[in-house]
Each structure stands twice: as C-alpha cells, then as structure tokens.
Design a protein around this nucleic acid. Structure first.
Lengths: 359, 359
DNA sequence: CTGAAAGCGCTTACAG
DNA sequence: CTGAAAGCGCTTACAG
C-alpha cells in the first residue's frame, strides 16, 4: 500500500496533492498540462481533480504567477478622414484596460492606415514579434488579415475580430455589426420617411471599390433593397457610388443626382460620410429631402440636431472595443466561456436620443 | 538618528514599512484608517505613501483577506403581471455575479411585491440584518426606500439605485432611464407616424395612481407633451388613465375611446402594458391606428413582428442590473471611480432590430 | 501603540 | 519523473 494520506483535509491544490499523494509541483504540472509527469501519476491526479470538481482560485494564481498578460489591439488610425470613428472603439478598449489592469493585464494599441495594406501588415508583424498573449483586431484587408491570424494560430495566440468579421476563422469571437440587418432596418426607417411616389437614393461613398470596406457598404445596400422587396415597397431605388471622398466632389455628385432625379425624397448613405451629404443639403437649402446614415460622429450630431439628418444607424463602436478586450480577459484569465459571436444591437439614433447615446 | 533603513528596496507595503521604519501591521493600519497608531507614526507613514504614490495590489489584498463581499439586490418579483420585466435586470445581475465571483463576491437577490409596500420593507429589513457590503435596489416606494437608504448610510453600506432614481440621496450612483427624455423621444416617433388631422391618444395603465410607479408614467407623458409644444405640432392629444389593468378592462376602455375619437391615429402607451392595447387592436382588426409603447417583452416582440406595434422604447433593463453590480464592484473592490449617474441610452426597437436587442 | 510571524492559493526555480 | 521550499503582496491574529 502506498504512503498514507498525510495530515488533515485542505483546499485547492493542496487537497489534490494530499489526496493523490503527490507534491504540489506535480499537481501544478498536471493542471497546466506541462510535461514531466508519468502516465500513472497523471491519471491519478486527474482523477482527483475530477472528483473534487476542482476550480482554480484565480486570485491565488494571479498573485503567484508573476506573469503579466499583454493584449495587442490592431485598429485603423483615428483620423479626420474617417471622422474619428475609431476613437470610440479605442475609448472602449481603454476603459476595459483600466478595469482589468489590477489583474495584471496591459493593453497596447497599434494602428494602421486604412488606405495602406502594408501599414496593416507592418503593425501585424510588430505585434507578432511583441510576444502578446491575446489580440483584438479589425480585419480590414482580407489577405493580410488571414496571414496574420494564421500566424496567431500557429503561436496559439487567441484573437478577436471587431467591426468586421471574417467567417470560418478560428477567432475567439466576433464582436460587431450585422451589416445586412442594419441595412434592412434602414429600409424600414426609409419607409417611415418616404412619400408614395418618391425615389430613394442610396449613396456609397468610399475611396476604394472592391476592398473589404466597400463590401461592407454593399452589404448594407443589399439589406435596404431586400427590405423593399420583402415588403413590396414600390418606390424606385436609385444609387450612386462616389469614390472621390472629398466634400466638394460629394457635393457636386449629389447635386447632379438631385437635379436629374427631382423626386428623390430620401437619401440613404451607407456610412458616416452621410455628414458630407448633409452638409451639401444644408448649404443649398434643400429641405425636402430626408437623410438617413450611419455612425454618430461629432459632426453628425450637428445635423441630427438641426434636422437635416433624421436617423443615424449606430452599432456601439465603443462597446465593441470594450467587449473585445473583455472577451480576451474572460477567456485567458477568468476561464469563462465566451460566445463565438456577439452581434451589436442596431441602434437608431435621432435628434431626441443622441445625447444619451453612449456610442 | 533612528534605526537605519534595513535591507534593500522592496515593493508595495513592504517598501512603505522599510522607508517609514515601521512594521507591516502598522502600514496596514494606516492604509485602512484603523486606530492604534500614534499621530507621529501616522504622519510618517502617510508621507511615505504619498511620496511613493502607492497603489495597493488588489490581488494581494483579495488573497490575504479572507473577507468575502456580499452584495444584496432588491427588485420587484418577476411576475406575469409585470410582463416578466424584471427578468432582464435579474439576468444582468446574474451575469455580473458570474464575472466577479472569482474575486470573492457573492450576490443575493431579494424580491418584493410591487403592490405591497410592506413586502418591500420586509425584504429591506432582511437585507439590513444580513450584513451585506453593498446594495442594489429599485426604490419603488418612496418612504420605505428612504428609510432603507437612511439605514444603509448609518451602517456605511453603499447602495445603487436602478430603474428609478430618488434625487439628492447619497446613492453611489443611479443607473436607469431619463423618463422625461424618453417621452420626448416618443413625441418625435409619434410625429413620424401621425397624419395632419389625426389625434394622439396617450394611455397610462397602472393599478395605482399616485405612487412612484404612476409618477413614472406621468413623466413620460410630460415628455411627449412638451415635444409637441416645443415643435409646434398641432395634433390634438387625448389621454386616458386606466387603473383596472385587466386585459379585458383595457380592451373595453380602448374601444370606448376609439369609438368616441375616431380620428385617433396613434396610441402611445407609457409602459409595457402596450401589449394589452396591441392585443385589443389586433383582435378587433383595427389597423389604421399605429402603436408606440415601452419595453421589449416576449409578448411585445410578437406585436412588433406582426406590425401592430411600430416602436418600443427600451432602456436596457439587463444592462441596468449588470452595471449596477459592477458599480458596487468597482467602488468596493477595485477602488475605481464610479460616475454618480448613468443614464441608459434610449433605444428605439422596431420589427427589424428587435432580434438584436440585448435588453 | 507596535511588531514578528503565519498564511491566503497558487507558481516557480531548484535539487534530486 | 518528483518533491520541498520559497515567494507573490497583502491581512490577520497574537504577543508585548
């Protein structure tokens, strides 16, 4: 018979060690799947862990292990061009970082230029070299993103997508909008604003056609169109793609369209550049056209307030950053389950509730 | 000269003790403001803490102190009568509880009957006896709530209000709706649905008049009315208070009103009983009246889907519970600052975005 | 009023 | 392959 179980009952790893008649270090090896344990001992210890339904004490673990967790965030630069949209996710990341700093987690944010794949790849490379434990990224460029996540998988680093998803990847989770559904909702909102014979003008404003970003806009457009089809709405849908994102250029295009299609009653802009359109309408005193767009930026707020824009569809950009970091924290430190997808609510922001909108 | 500073530099409390030339226990006393330290020593230690800009290590603290934190939650029963509204805050509480359980926090929920002040007072008493460290409550009854929070203050127990606020109290924070603003938004939504000569019918359905609950409804009504005034909307506003909350009684009243005022184009119901109204309209095939109401309940979803209800105004009941618990956690355990008020966003839920609404 | 020591539940060298 | 011991940063009896 083996050595008698020594001393009295304990808790946690000590109790496991006592029951299995091994040393603490061995228990630790088993718990973390480290090598250096004989098959026989391994099984013995595992059995005890099972029967105790052992749950590790996170606090003890965190204190003992001097390991700090480092998370990296890879998002677009916060620029004028993007209406400072990425400020909100960055803020959410920051807030989460503060809340979990005391658990030994640090967060470093890397940026890339939305118009430059290489800057994405460059930041990605720096992250891979940085020895991070978890990654949050907005996968803007398909190819570069796939190369990056592939590398993460090789290194066994969990990653979370925000804002846009790449399906069928092994991301820990996706946190962001359902673009198609938001367009579908847009269709409903249009129906509240439009008069029977009016036309609807869908406007996509984006420098590049055919990249991930552009696809995003098209998904929304599809949503609008299928709402119309599905609900047998007879109003004609016009559309225009504007690739010169300069305000002046947008103004010109919009005025041209309105001249050509004077029965345009509603303009639906598929991103935050709705502001440029609103500016144009305001400037030319065009007040018979209602406007719906995306994202609540500082400048958009203004046009909501003065009634040029009726609705902005928003998808909690700040919460995307916050939850993205928290998902990594829950997975890596707290060992909590993380849902593999988390669609943001599709919020309708108007003049009367925008002050309460927490991004 | 005093004893030389011994040994080499340390971190945290040890370093404080070393620099101040005192024992760890003394440092601990100072940090927690416990008695038994001479004025002189106190100042010396405080000075060192200052100059080190010492931040306690939460992990070490939590591990050493065997103290568990117990939070109590005091909310209405989850009943059919309230459309199971309180399920959502309870879920939020639950989710928060899971996330912070590993930090040694437990949460116990107490319920009360919305129609019985004494049940509120009774649960409050049980909480006070329970030795809880933090409290989250929905202050439904003014007098009883004040007595309760007064007692909490005496015992130095922080408390958080959710769902309804009692201003000028020393609550750690308030998390919930701005009722007036939500009514104001309701006014805007009505304006999208109503035709020029139509009348608007505001419906308050509540068992008791003149209690806190009823006041809540009136605040929303005020919001609607002032939107109309402020925006010079000429449609006539009708109103009815229904105190018999039975579905049949509501049906009867609504039919009476519609018979008497056939130009009613929009019905605005100031709470989740909008479902009873929707049911009535559906049953009698009245489809020329548009409906706006509050709160996304299971049953409300149905009427959103089949088009009887156009808009439901919601204020994140689940998040109220979640954030309420987190506020206590941040304050009590993490020593983070907590904003003294946190208004929920005022969400517009429609047929097309209700599936994405996370309460 | 003050301090030395033990301990919270775990991990980490290090020795064998 | 295994274990005894020290230590993470703090708190808590207990002794003086």
């Amino acid at each position: 018979m083996a050595k008698a179980k020594s001393t009295k009952p304990q808790k946690g790893v000590k109790e496991i060690a006592r029951r299995a008649n091994v040393a603490l270090a061995t228990v630790d090896r088993v718990i973390h799947g480290r090598p250096g344990v004989s098959q026989k001992t391994l099984e013995k210890v595992k059995k005890v862990i099972e029967e105790m339904n052992y749950q590790p004490n996170i606090i003890g673990r965190r204190l003992a292990s001097m390991k700090e967790y480092h998370f990296a965030v890879l998002i677009p630069e916060i620029t004028e061009e993007s209406g400072f949209f990425w400020q909100a996710p960055a803020d959410g990341v920051q807030q989460a970082a503060e809340e979990i700093r005391s658990m030994g987690v640090s967060v470093t944010t890397f940026f890339f230029d939305q118009n430059d794949k290489r800057s994405f790849a460059g930041s990605a490379r720096r992250i891979l070299r940085g020895g991070f434990d978890g990654i949050l990224l907005a996968p803007f460029f398909m190819e570069e993103s796939l190369a990056f996540t592939k590398a993460c998988e090789t290194k066994n680093i969990p990653y979370v997508f925000i804002n846009s998803d790449i399906p069928d990847q092994k991301s820990l989770t996706y946190i962001g909008p359902d673009l198609y559904a938001s367009g579908y909702l847009g269709g409903q909102l249009i129906s509240y604003l439009i008069k029977p014979k009016d036309q609807v003008l869908i406007v996509n404003i984006s420098r590049e056609i055919k990249n991930v970003k552009q696809n995003r806009l098209l998904r929304k457009e599809e949503g609008v169109r299928s709402y119309f089809t599905g609900n047998k709405i007879k109003n004609e849908i016009l559309k225009i793609d504007i690739t010169n994102v300069d305000e002046k250029a947008v103004e010109k295009k919009i005025l041209e369209m309105l001249a050509q299609y004077p029965r345009t009653g509603v303009i639906f802009v598929t991103n935050s550049r709705v502001v440029s359109v609103a500016k144009c309408l305001k400037k030319h005193f065009i007040d018979h056209v209602r406007v719906i767009g995306y994202d609540l930026l500082e400048s958009g707020m203004e046009y909501l307030k003065n009634g040029v824009i009726d609705f902005l569809i928003c998808q909690k950009p700040q919460e995307q950053g916050y939850r993205g970091i928290m998902a990594l924290y829950h997975h890596l430190i707290l060992n909590l389950k993380v849902a593999d997808r988390y669609y943001m609510p599709i919020d309708i922001v108007t003049r009367e509730n925008c002050a309460y909108y927490k991004n």
